[in-house]
Design a protein around this nucleic acid. Structure first.
Lengths: 92, 92
DNA sequence: CATTTTAATCGTAATATTGCGATAATGGGA
DNA sequence: TCCCATTATCGCAATATTACGATTAAAATG
């Protein structure tokens, strides 16, 4: 899971999709400044991770966050990063 | 940041440290089942990321979560994974 | 001081990731 | 049907990550 978001390009894709909060058709390539092939590859990885979905819309493909999976990610990271308070204050 | 936790071994280390909620001196090697060199390398990456700290305790080194940085991670992931609700319900 | 224990570092091989040009595949017009 | 626009996929080079044995460093102990 962390791997899916462990690359600047993929973080940028996700942030862009979140910002738009809607389906985005293809402007990702200009947005990222990466080659079309590279962009497509990152999108594929995010799709494989389940965090985004792409629907064919005629000649375009529209991408958007999958809110359900997104929430799962949110919760899982939340659980993982639960509170930690070293009782001793300083360590050792 | 995501990269720091984007490897099973490093996740295991962090979970172990959280579970113990204290300083852990060296049992990580047996815990992980990896070579000592490999374990040390992962610990170094986590230290570089700032999420753990290691203090020399005589001949041992004790590791523990840095609660402050840990909280920062928690909050940053929280912000990143803020709520997303596609208004249209289904995408496209 | 020599030895032992623990951890870090070095060097290197194996593997994975990333990026991109070239090449398909698909659908919508002219 | 023949192009054109948009994506996906392939093949490959460059780079990064991972793992491990060997070596080094540091500290405690006899």
């Amino acid at each position: 899971m962390a791997k899916a978001i462990a690359h600047p390009a993929r973080v940028a894709i996700l942030q862009y999709l979140v910002k738009k909060n809607a389906c985005v058709c293809g402007d990702l390539v200009e947005e990222l400044g990466l080659a079309q092939a590279t962009t497509s590859q990152h999108l594929k990885e995010l799709k494989t991770a389940g965090i985004i979905q792409g629907t064919v819309e005629g000649v375009n493909v529209c991408y958007c966050i999958d809110p359900k999976v997104w929430k799962q990610y949110r919760e899982l990271f939340n659980v993982f990063f639960k509170d930690v308070t070293l009782e001793g204050g300083n360590c050792c």
